[in-house]
Simulated scan of single mutants.
Amino acid sequence: MKEIKPETFKETLPIQIRFSDIDALGHINNNVYFSYFDLGKTTYFETVKGKSDISWTDGLIVVAHIEVDFLSPVYYREGIVVDSKVTRLGDKSGIFLQQIRNVKNGEIKCRCKSVFVTYDAHTQASIPIPDTWRKIISEHEGLEEEKVLAE
């Protein structure tokens, strides 16, 4: 089993497991985890946005790469949350770290690292992360300037 180092997350979203999420073995189907991670991303951006007038659609976010470690199955009726944070911002991309965690015992069930790219749908090209996004995410996560600007 892969060694998972503990991480601190500021954003946590409780997940309601649906009947359709369960496979024949009685646990959550692996492809369903991706919808949980998407919910976590949506909630993350809404939380970080706060009361500002920042628009997350001025420069769309697309997932360019995703890697997942499935550590332990999640069963129906198990209380779980998805934890989310941005760990790095480059010029045109950033890295999300997310995990599915059991709320009773803290066991990490699954960990996901995804690279997102800011993208202009009109030109169909990547664009620099808007300065307002960079500032608000960096302040929220406490990212250092060197880490933020590193690509």
Rank of each mutant, 00 (worst) to 15 (best):
Asn105Phe: 00
Ala64His: 02
Tyr33Ile: 01
Tyr75Ser: 11
Ser126His: 01
Phe96Asn: 03
Ile28Ala: 04
Ile17Val: 05
Leu149Phe: 15
Ile17Trp: 06
Asp120Gly: 13
Ser84Asp: 08
Glu141Ser: 01
Arg18Ile: 08
Ile100Ala: 07
Leu143Phe: 04
Gln124Asn: 14
Ile28Arg: 08
Val63Ile: 13
Asp53Cys: 11
Glu139Asn: 12
Lys51Leu: 09
Ala24Thr: 10
Thr123Asp: 14
Ala64Thr: 03
Val68Thr: 14
Ile15Phe: 13
Ala125Tyr: 10
Glu78Ala: 06
Cys110Pro: 00
Glu7Gln: 13
Ser93Pro: 04
His122Gln: 13
Glu146Lys: 08
Val86Tyr: 04
Ile54Gln: 08
Thr87Pro: 08
Ile54Ser: 10
Val63Glu: 04
Gly40Cys: 06
Ser55Ala: 12
Ile108Leu: 14
Asp53Pro: 09
Glu3Leu: 09
Ile61Asn: 04
Gly40Lys: 07
Ser138Ala: 08
Lys147Ile: 15
Tyr36His: 00
Glu7Val: 13
Ile15Pro: 05
Leu97Asp: 02
Ile127Ala: 09
Pro14Lys: 08
Ser93His: 03
Thr43Pro: 08
Glu145Ile: 09
Ser55Leu: 12
Tyr76Phe: 15
Met1His: 10
His27Val: 08
Asn31Lys: 05
Ile80Cys: 10
Ile66Tyr: 05
Leu13Arg: 14
Leu149Met: 15
Lys109Phe: 06
Ser126Phe: 00
His65Val: 07
Tyr44Val: 08
Asp83Leu: 14
Gly142Thr: 05
Tyr75Thr: 11
Ile80His: 03
Val82Glu: 02
Ser20Pro: 05
Glu3Arg: 09
Phe45Arg: 11
Leu89Val: 02
Tyr76Gly: 11
Thr132Glu: 14
Ile127Val: 12
Asn105Val: 06
His27Ala: 11
Val63Gly: 07
Leu97Cys: 09
Ser20Leu: 11
Phe19Lys: 02
Val148Gln: 04
Lys2Thr: 12
Lys51Asn: 13
Ala121Pro: 12
Tyr76Val: 10
Asp21Asn: 11
Leu25Gln: 12
Arg111Ala: 07
Asp131Pro: 09
Glu7Gly: 12
Gly90Ser: 05
Val48Trp: 02
Lys104Ala: 14
Glu141Cys: 03
Gln99Arg: 15
Ile95Lys: 09
Thr12His: 06
Val148Leu: 06
Glu3Trp: 10
Val148His: 03
Ala121His: 13
Arg88Asp: 02
Val115Glu: 03
Val117Gln: 04
Leu71Glu: 04
Arg134Glu: 00
Arg77Leu: 12
Gly79Trp: 03
Ser20Tyr: 07
Phe96Thr: 06
Trp133Thr: 07
Tyr75His: 13
Lys135Ile: 04
Gly26Asn: 07
Leu60Thr: 06
Leu71Ala: 10
Gly94Leu: 01
Glu144Arg: 11
Arg18Asp: 11
Thr87Arg: 01
Leu13Pro: 14
Arg88Asn: 07
Gln16Asp: 12
Tyr75Gly: 09
Glu145Tyr: 11
